[in-house]
Nucleic acid binder design. Structure first.
Length: 326
DNA sequence: ACGCAGGGCGATA
DNA sequence: TATCGCCCTGCG
C-alpha cells in the first residue's frame, strides 16, 4: 500500500510549525529522521507498521501538509490522517491558546517566538515512557541517541526505498535484555569467540545507571502497570501509578502524562522551568519543584502543558535562559 | 585535563 | 518531612 494525501491548514485551528514541533526536544520520542525536506518515522496504525513521510513548505506555516504513507499491509487513509493529526497536536486550537497567553503579560511575548509550535505526541506510549526515563538527568542528544540505539538493537526491522526503520521493542522484549557487558557475556558463554564485541546490552546504548530502571520498568508494564488503564484514569491517579516505576519521579511522570497520554493539565518542572517560573512570577526568589508544579497546574489549568512548552522555548530563544544560568 | 550539568533514589536526621 | 551525596556521560 502506498498513498499520498494532504492536510489543509483549514482542517486545524491555528498554525503548525512542523520543523519546530519535531525538533523541540519533547520527551515523547526522538526527533523524526530528517531527509530531503521530509520527516520520516515508522508508526503503527490500526496495528500495522506504516512509514509516514511528512513535509511542510519551508517557512510557510499555512501551506498544506504533504503526507506519503507506505506499508506492506493495507491501511485506511482516514486512519493515517487521524494519527498524523493526533501526533502533531493538530486537534489543539492554537488560536485559543494564544488568546489565553495574551491575557498574561509574562506569557504574551512567547507567542512570537513559538508560532506554530505544538505538542508532539508519542505514537508509541511505551517508547515515550522509556524515552522519558532515559531523559532524566541527561541531554536531549544523548537520550535521542539511546532510544535510536535501543530500536536498532531490539526493534523489528522494516525496509523501504527511503531507508531502514525499526520499531521500538515491546515491554516483553526489553525486560529480557542484558543490562551490561558482564551479563551479556555470561548469557552467551557457550558460543563466545575471541573477537566477541559486547554491544547488545542496555548500557551499550549510553543509558548509564538508568539501565536497571528501564529493565525493571519494562517488567512492571503489563504486570502491575497497565498502559491502557493509565490513559483512562484521572490525572492524579495516573500520576501516582507512574511514580511506582523506577526512574520515574514527578518531572518524568508529568512528561509521560503530557507527551505520552495527552494530559494537557500536567506541568513538568525541570531545573529550567523552575528558574523561569521563579524569575517570571516570584521575583527571582527560589521556588522548589513541587511548588512550581502546583503553581503551574493551578494557574494555567488545561493550558499548563502548552505553557510549559512555550515558556521553555521562549526562554531559550529570547536569551532569558542564558541569563538564568549560573 | 577535569569539573559540572541533569532528575531520581536511598540514606540520613 | 526535608536535605544531600551519588549514579553516568558529554561537554566546555
Amino acid at each position: 500500500m502506498k498513498t499520498r494525501f494532504e492536510i489543509d491548514s483549514h482542517e486545524y485551528k491555528g498554525q503548525l510549525n512542523l520543523d519546530l514541533t519535531i525538533k523541540s526536544g519533547q520527551t515523547s520520542q526522538p526527533a523524526w529522521l530528517h531527509k530531503d525536506d521530509y520527516f520520516l518515522e515508522l508508526v503503527a496504525i490500526e496495528g500495522k507498521q506504516c512509514l509516514i513521510k511528512i513535509r511542510q513548505e519551508y517557512n510557510d506555516l499555512e501551506s498544506p501538509l504533504e503526507i506519503f504513507a507506505e506499508s506492506s499491509e493495507d491501511v485506511e487513509e482516514d486512519s493515517i490522517r487521524e494519527s498524523v493529526m493526533e501526533i502533531f497536536g493538530l486537534n489543539d486550537d492554537l488560536n485559543d491558546l494564544y488568546d489565553f497567553l495574551r491575557k498574561d503579560p509574562k506569557l504574551e511575548p512567547s507567542i512570537d517566538f513559538c508560532k506554530g509550535l505544538r505538542l508532539f505526541k508519542a505514537h508509541n506510549p511505551f517508547e515515550c515512557i522509556i524515552s522519558s526515563i532515559s531523559s532524566a538527568n541527561c541531554s536531549i542528544i544523548r537520550w535521542n541517541r539511546s532510544i535510536n540505539d535501543i530500536k536498532m538493537k531490539w526493534g523489528e526491522k522494516f525496509k523501504f526505498d527511503s531507508g531502514i526503520f525499526y520499531t521500538f521493542p515491546s515491554p516483553e522484549t526489553l525486560r529480557n535484555v542484558p543490562e551490561h557487558d558482564l551479563e551479556e557475556m555470561q548469557r552467551s558463554e557457550d558460543h563466545l569467540s575471541k573477537e566477541f564485541i559486547f554491544e547488545k546490552n542496555l548500557k551499550s546504548c549510553g543509558v548509564g545507571y538508568r539501565a536497571k530502571f528501564i529493565i525493571k520498568a519494562a517488567e512492571m508494564i503489563g504486570n502491575q502497570i497497565d498502559i491502557d488503564k493509565l490513559t483512562k484514569q484521572s490525572y492524579d491517579a495516573a500520576f501516582d501509578s507512574l511514580l511506582q516505576l523506577p526512574g520515574v519521579g514527578p518531572k518524568v511522570a508529568d512528561c509521560i502524562l503530557l507527551y505520552g497520554f495527552g494530559y494537557r493539565n500536567s506541568f513538568p518542572v525541570d531545573v529550567w522551568i523552575g528558574r523561569i517560573v521563579s524569575e517570571l512570577y516570584f521575583n527571582g526568589e527560589e521556588i522548589k519543584p513541587p511548588k512550581a508544579r502546583l503553581f503551574g497546574m493551578e494557574k494555567f489549568g488545561n493550558y499548563a502543558g502548552y505553557v510549559q512548552l512555550y515558556m521553555f522555548h521562549y526562554a531559550r530563544k529570547s536569551g532569558l535562559l542564558d541569563s538564568l544560568k549560573k
